[in-house]
Write a protein that binds this DNA or RNA. Structure first.
Length: 595
DNA sequence: CTAGGGTTAG
């Protein structure tokens, strides 16, 4: 969005000198001005407002502060989208040109529009006017709306300063500051401000609590969340639908799905956000099946899902591999003329690629009009999963052509694409570019991916050296990648080192032991393999059975390691054996590429 | 006639 007019031209209007506010007479209830005021207030569209504006320009007696306030209010309340700050400011400028002075009502209207559109520069200019007219010091509405502009624009220091200098703070001032910290990604500070508010003997209302609860959700701090929940009971805060939704969201994000579900079920009023909070929250907790059950319930009751609901449903389908259900959602989207773009488009791309339909994923991606970093990342990760490294790399280079900056996750996809395709040099180059060109700090996942890449290419000593030179502490993923590479290339000694490190980090997991004992077996070191298995038994290392699932004609088939409950398990096992021996005949390298 | 509220992906 761009503003053709950025400046209020302060110097040419009123800012050059401090303006004493003239006492303006209240409009006479029988004057034409009064009648026009009522009419402007009853306008139902921006077009009607504009007609009155035209009238005001023509008729001098209508050019008063009150009339301009009403017009500005109308413009800012009808134009919820873009452009309201510009339009409001143009009206404000016109008002100043006519020699009129803003009132304590004018400034909040203007600032609200600025806050809605994150128009920081315009807000700053109005800030100057608020000082010059003396309104900032005398009116708490002016101060609170100004604080809000700074808060939503991320200038939390300015908001805090205004707050500190404010002699007559009210609950809205506190709430605005708390929200400022939440919006700038500092939930910890937000909660601290809330407790200071309590010390200052203010009692939170529903609006404050919704924000505080969202801070708890961001922190994922369950005991804090429960503490706030108790505070609500102690202070008799009403539980309206907003508070209920915030509670559901908070408890889910803090990992207490049961409490969230209970609150959800007890809510006397629910709206689509309530359902979305449940569905998305459950999905976020990895409870995808539960999320879909809630969605089914929502459908049964007849609540119409919105695009956010569908994102949650698609995400659940993606993670359960439910291609048929995912396709159903896609059909629903088409049927209801929901655009397969933005959030929805990205979720569709992810669903199709996670469900194995990379061609469909590509089709959705190519059909999107607005692609962002999430869209590109989703398709690159998908292509990487499907071994389509060349296309992943091509789409990555498209990204910079259209000016979208990759982020950490994009690189994860890119590096894994290189890794799976055995493109060691190309992967290393991208890894270096990550910090050098894009200023992104590689995380342990990226290092793990590089170890995997080097390991698959057989460059095990390079991988070992790479780990030694890591600027951050290698974690289980890094050692796991090394161990996996050792397994593939039969490097028993290095594998033992990786296993030792893995066991140090997560002694309760069995994966490292299993991999290592398989390695011993492959190297005909049966005694070592046995020793390891015995050790596991002694230490009571819990075994997590591997599980995979696939959907076929709408039925989910689950396979757990060591379990033979599937009706066609023998047929499937026989096929897999044949398939594996077939693969082996292609030679070692091909098997590695497949692994 | 003016200010503060929840859910959004890889």
């Amino acid at each position: 969005m761009s503003f053709p007019c950025h400046s209020l031209s302060i110097s040419t209007t009123i800012a050059a000198k401090t303006i004493p506010l003239p006492a303006s007479p209240e409009p006479d209830p029988v004057s034409p001005q009064f009648a026009v005021l009522r009419k402007i207030e009853s306008c139902k569209s921006i077009e009607e407002i504009k007609q009155f504006h035209a009238l005001v320009i023509k008729l001098r007696p209508l050019q008063t502060q009150f009339v301009y306030n009403a017009i500005i209010r109308g413009v800012t309340s009808f134009r919820t989208g873009c452009g309201s700050s510009l339009e409001a400011i143009l009206l404000y400028r016109e008002m100043l040109m006519k020699g009129l002075v803003p009132t304590d009502y004018t400034i909040p209207f203007l600032l609200k529009a600025c806050a809605q559109e994150f128009a920081l520069r315009e807000g700053e200019e109005i800030h100057v006017h608020a000082i010059k007219t003396g309104l900032l010091g005398s009116n708490v509405y002016v101060k609170n709306t100004l604080m809000r502009v700074y808060a939503v624009c991320g200038v939390i220091g300015a908001a805090q300063k205004l707050f500190d200098e404010c002699p007559q703070r009210d609950l809205v001032s506190w709430t605005t500051l708390i929200q400022g910290y939440v919006k700038t990604g500092s939930p910890r500070e937000a909660v601290e401000v809330f407790f200071r508010m309590c010390e200052a003997s203010f009692v939170a209302d529903e609006m404050t609590l919704v924000i505080v609860l969202s801070a708890c959700a961001m922190l994922g701090d369950l005991s804090l969340g429960k503490r706030i929940y108790r505070y609500m009971h102690e202070n008799g805060v009403k539980r309206d639908v907003f508070v209920g939704n915030a509670l559901v969201d908070m408890f889910l994000k803090c990992g207490d799905a049961d409490l969230a579900r209970w609150i959800f079920s007890e809510m006397p009023m629910k709206n689509v956000v309530s359902w979305n909070s449940m569905i998305l929250g459950l999905a976020q907790q990895g409870k995808f099946k539960e999320a879909l059950v809630v969605y089914e319930e929502m459908q049964t009751i007849g609540i119409r899902p919105d695009d956010i609901t569908l994102v949650g449903v698609l995400n659940s389908c993606a993670n359960l591999g439910l291609l048929e259900s995912g396709k159903w959602v896609h059909a629903y989207i088409n049927k209801h003329k929901i655009s397969a773009d933005g959030f929805i488009g990205n979720a569709l791309v992810d669903m199709y690629s996670k469900c194995g339909s990379i061609n469909q994923a590509l089709r959705v991606f190519q059909g999107m009009k607005h692609r962002d970093v999430y869209s590109y990342t989703a398709i690159i990760v998908g292509l990487a999963m499907h071994g389509e490294a060349a296309l992943a790399l091509e789409i990555f280079s498209d990204m910079s052509l259209v000016g979208i900056r990759p982020d950490e996750v994009t690189f994860l996809g890119l590096l894994s694409a290189c890794s799976h395709a055995g493109l060691a040099d190309e992967g290393q180059r991208h890894f270096e570019d990550m910090s050098r060109v894009y200023g992104l700090e590689p995380q342990t996942e990226h290092y793990a991916c590089m170890v995997d890449l080097l390991g698959r290419a057989g460059l095990l000593s390079d991988a070992e050296e790479f780990i030694k030179n890591m600027p951050i502490e290698p974690d289980a993923f890094v050692w796991g990648a090394l161990l996996g590479a050792c397994k593939v290339h039969g490097k028993v000694e290095l594998g033992e080192l990786a296993m030792k490190k893995l066991v140090e980090i997560e002694p309760e997991r069995d994966g490292a032991y299993i991999l290592m004992s398989n390695m011993y077996s492959s190297a005909d070191r049966w005694r070592d393999a046995l020793k390891l298995r015995r050790f596991m038994k002694e230490k009571h290392v819990k075994k997590t059975p591997g599980c995979s699932s696939i959907e076929l004609d709408g039925i989910v088939h689950e396979f757990r390691k060591g379990e033979k409950s599937h009706p066609k398990i023998e047929e499937i096992s026989r096929f897999l054996e044949e398939f594996t021996s077939h693969l082996k005949s292609y030679g070692q390298q091909d098997i590695i590429a497949f692994a």
